[in-house]
Design a protein around this nucleic acid. Sequence first.
DNA 1: GCCAACGTTGGC
DNA 2: GCCAACGTTGGC
Length: 153
Amino acid sequence: MRYWLMKSEPSEYGIDDLVRDGSVAWFGVRNYQARNFMRDEMRLGDGVLFYHSSCPEPGIAGLAEVSRLAYPDATQFDPRHKYFDPRSTPQAPRWFNVEVRALKKTRLMPLAEIRGCPELAGMKILQRGNRLSITPVEPAEWAFILARLGETA
DNA sequence: GCCAACGTTGGC
DNA sequence: GCCAACGTTGGC
């Protein structure tokens, strides 16, 4: 059982969308490190912090879990799609996505609050210049955040 | 809109 | 393999 933080822009797809949909395919990741996390390391039931980025109030907005293991991202094969990748073929797909299921919408835990917690100082999201859309979360960080949000593990 | 930081591309 | 140029991310 591992834990992850996954960023999404709420103007594109936010926690309310996830709760409405129940689950979603995490397509569109075009970064090798983030892809490798999904393809190689995520397991069913892994915990996910759903994070709102590039918005007026960036922060953790909800909890989710990995509900389907990685499979080829369909958008890479679609020439009309903005995530089309001409270097990919169905025989040699380059990009993968997992699916994520909503557990619940939480109160927003703003980036500033995360930054203010010494227990969370090691989080990747706080490291200078980190732009990775998917990052691993330590079990202790996960537990601390859940406690802080008034959730039980 | 600004800008720092980073990943990717491509010429050599 | 190097590295400059470019594009993107994301907080502010």
